[in-house]
Amino acid sequence: MQKDSRIYIAGHKGLVGSAILNNLKEKGYKNLIYKTSSELDLRDSKQVYNFFENENVEYVFLAAAKVGGIVANNEFPADFIRDNILIQTNVIDAAYKYDVKKLLFLGSTCIYPKLANQPLKEEYLLTGELEPTNEPYAIAKIAGIKMCESYNRQYKTNFISAMPTNLYGPNDNFDLETSHVLPALIRKFHEAKANGNSKVELWGTGTPKREFLHTKDLSDACVFLMENYSGNDIVNVGVGQDISIAELAEKIKRIVGFEGEVVYDTSKPDGTPRKLVDVTKINKLGWRAKISLAVGLKETYGWFKDNLK
């Protein structure tokens, strides 16, 4: 990419897209293109094709997606598989039809089998059953990966796929019904402290382990891959370390300053027992995560307090 290349960031208002947009701006890229969902509905193929025809896009960061935690995935499985397949199908196909030079597709580590060996290597894709609680979302993301691979094979496109681990940071979704675990914990502990509650109740046992990547690190990895990597193999993006939900809860509890008790509702699902990605490939390419969880959590909680409305 050149500093004046026409670069489209799909999903620029979201957690990942906003971080990619900021990263590109910081690196001096000047020709950045983005539209809100009300301006451009990526589920509508006609709107997408018209957009690509008119904008002369050269590079695409496909960060637009319908995302959510266990609750949202359980309650709205049809929305998750339909919306994500529509978004990525329209954008990937339009990128091919209108001669985009390169596209980066953002997947998710939920594409890997529920009981795959840890850490998760890229070659574990499609080697076992998925985690049932987010299977529709995972299948949509797998379809996006295979679509990029297939277009590369048939049409000689340059479409790459990155698989980030669990993400957090500014612009996250803190809605308790639809958010992921880390922002949900921040909000729960903050509200419990504000309301003077004596305890916070969390889903599951607290034993599942998760890896958390700050969106600033992910955005840096995405730009790095766009500049330095081409190929059909997917690339994991993570920090290479994980933490139990119970340990995460204690860290957030201390940062927020909540002094009550943490209680676990073991009747609720845990989700995948562990999700740690193998980051050997991206490390060998020359990229490593830089932001520690302690620093990232403090920053994210600060952003949450500044943007409570």
Results as ranks from 00 to 15, higher is better:
64 A>C: 03
113 P>Y: 07
57 V>L: 06
210 R>K: 12
279 V>W: 07
116 A>N: 07
154 Q>A: 12
308 L>A: 07
221 A>P: 06
221 A>K: 08
173 N>I: 10
193 K>Q: 09
72 A>C: 01
99 D>R: 12
248 L>C: 05
114 K>I: 09
263 V>E: 11
71 V>Y: 10
289 A>N: 06
127 T>F: 01
76 F>R: 14
26 E>L: 12
82 R>C: 08
245 I>W: 09
151 Y>D: 00
277 V>D: 07
173 N>M: 03
121 K>H: 09
296 G>N: 02
279 V>P: 06
276 L>M: 10
266 T>E: 14
109 T>G: 10
273 P>N: 03
228 N>T: 04
19 A>S: 12
141 K>R: 13
5 S>Y: 03
285 L>M: 12
74 N>F: 08
95 A>T: 02
203 W>D: 15
223 V>R: 06
210 R>L: 14
151 Y>F: 15
156 K>C: 05
27 K>F: 02
241 Q>S: 13
42 L>T: 05
66 K>Q: 13
130 L>K: 04
232 N>D: 15
143 A>D: 05
165 T>E: 04
280 T>S: 15
119 P>I: 05
76 F>P: 00
201 E>R: 11
112 Y>P: 01
188 K>Y: 05
168 Y>I: 07
76 F>N: 14
129 E>L: 11
263 V>M: 04
233 D>S: 15
80 F>R: 00
165 T>I: 10
30 K>V: 00
66 K>N: 11
173 N>T: 09
261 E>D: 14
256 V>Y: 01
293 L>V: 01
16 V>S: 11
106 L>R: 06
164 P>R: 08
165 T>P: 00
263 V>H: 08
211 E>C: 09
193 K>H: 05
89 T>P: 00
221 A>E: 08
203 W>L: 13
259 E>G: 09
51 F>A: 06
244 S>M: 02
164 P>A: 10
230 S>W: 04
134 N>C: 13
4 D>A: 09
219 S>G: 09
77 P>N: 04
161 S>M: 02
125 L>P: 01
253 K>T: 03
20 I>T: 14
127 T>H: 01
26 E>T: 10
6 R>T: 06
169 G>L: 03
255 I>F: 07
260 G>E: 08
167 L>E: 08
156 K>D: 11
65 A>H: 03
58 E>G: 05
7 I>E: 03
108 S>K: 07
155 Y>E: 15
202 L>T: 03
276 L>S: 07
86 L>T: 00
109 T>F: 11
102 K>Y: 05
158 N>R: 11
30 K>N: 09
64 A>D: 02
154 Q>L: 15
121 K>E: 13
9 I>W: 04
27 K>R: 15
295 V>N: 13
14 G>W: 07
294 A>D: 15
23 N>G: 00
204 G>R: 07
117 N>Y: 10
66 K>F: 08
247 E>R: 09
189 F>L: 05
241 Q>T: 15
78 A>I: 13
304 F>G: 06
128 G>K: 07
154 Q>W: 12
65 A>T: 12
220 D>W: 03
284 K>N: 14
167 L>A: 05
159 F>Q: 01
12 H>T: 07
39 E>G: 02
156 K>T: 07
230 S>F: 06
147 M>N: 13
100 V>W: 05
76 F>S: 12
